[in-house]
């Protein structure tokens, strides 16, 4: 949809590389790179100073150096975990080969590795959970938002409910969701863990509102002229929605989706903590319970990771919006 052109921001860099940058371009570069770097350095410096002055029962508050050290520790643990896993499967295969050689009728049983998940496994799990929850929320919120936007009666009927449930914190939903899932989701061989379902539903419940509201507003504000075009062409209901309403509302739908994804990611961490679902939230909780001298540093790594991933998720949505939506103005921010 979008043509491949060089993004405008590359140009000054190219000029600098070519050695033909104008003063204005250098100034622009300084603003673009220099100021954010300055801000970051200031933050790290202040953090370093402040961290030294905070004493906790688990030692000093982790400063930048502790955190960077924990990053490499976590990475080393991840490598070690992977190596252990590989070794486990290798041993299993060797054992099975031996038994099959001794007894040709033996039906091999393969077991999964059950070692504890590493920090990076937790990240992946969290991403899967948040995506599932976000997907469920979108699948509910977009069609519902369209229906609400199209009919003033439905809007009047549902608006109080939306306003009522929108501000509810995930922590309030969680006990209810947990009990309902425990009662309803009963299976001998569950496809996914209960804790996963609980966190996913909590994420969905909390994150569907922005998409719902923005979609309905987007649909309500479809230009009357376009509605008239649709009437003159005698488009049927389905075609009217598909050809006129959805494309018109798409920029607003995407704004909603971006807000929803942000909320989903925030809620997920809390839900994982309480539902004991594997993921970054559980990592933070476990480290807190663990209470070793390294724990705070490791939690700080998790905090920064959560922030970074949240940022990347938002950028991904923005990219998707730029790619899919006709109105490029709407994707400027």
């Amino acid at each position: 949809m979008s043509s491949i052109t060089m993004p405008g921001w590359i140009e000054p860099y190219l000029s600098v590389v070519k050695g033909e940058a104008s003063r204005a371009q250098v100034a622009q570069l300084l603003r673009q790179i220099g100021l954010p770097v300055l801000g970051l350095l200031t933050f790290i410096f202040l953090w370093h100073i402040a961290a030294q002055r905070i004493d906790t029962s688990l030692g000093k508050f982790p400063g930048p150096s502790d955190v960077s050290q924990q990053v490499s520790t976590l990475y080393a643990e991840h490598k070690a975990g992977r190596a252990k896993e590989k070794a486990f499967y290798q041993r299993q295969e060797v054992r099975i080969e031996d038994r099959v050689a001794a007894d040709p009728d033996y039906v091999p049983v393969r077991r999964d590795y059950t070692g504890s998940p590493t920090f990076f496994d937790q990240i992946i799990t969290s991403l899967i959970t948040v995506m599932c929850g976000f997907l469920v929320a979108s699948v509910i919120a977009i069609p519902l938002g369209i229906v609400i936007g199209l009919s003033t009666s439905v809007h009047a009927a549902t608006n109080p409910l939306i306003q009522l449930f929108k501000p509810v914190s995930p922590l309030a939903w969680l006990p209810l969701v947990t009990m309902v899932v425990s009662a309803v989701y009963v299976s001998d061989d569950p496809m996914v863990a209960k804790s996963f379902v609980v966190s996913m539903i909590t994420v969905s419940l909390c994150s569907l509102w922005p998409t719902l509201i923005n979609t309905s507003v987007g649909v309500t504000s479809v230009s009357q002229d376009l509605v008239n075009v649709s009437r003159v062409l005698r488009l049927g209901w389905a075609e009217h929605v598909r050809k006129i309403v959805i494309p018109s509302a798409l920029p607003m739908i995407f704004t909603g989706l971006r807000l929803s994804l942000g909320i989903a990611w925030m809620v997920l961490i809390a839900a994982e903590m309480l539902a004991q679902n594997p993921g970054l939230g559980k990592f933070v909780w476990d480290e807190f319970q663990n209470g070793s001298s390294q724990s705070l540093g490791r939690i700080m790594v998790a905090v920064l990771t959560i922030g970074l991933i949240g940022f990347l998720l938002d950028r991904t949505m923005l990219g998707l919006q730029r790619w899919l939506v006709w109105d490029k103005q709407s994707a400027q921010r």
Binding site: S223, D225, V232
Partner: peptide, 17 residues
């Protein structure tokens, strides 16, 4: 409304996408 009475609207009313 119907296409046998096509309308040209004041502000073109083209679908922008």
């Amino acid at each position: 409304p119907g296409p046998e009475r096509a309308v040209v609207f004041q502000n073109h009313s083209l679908l922008p996408w």
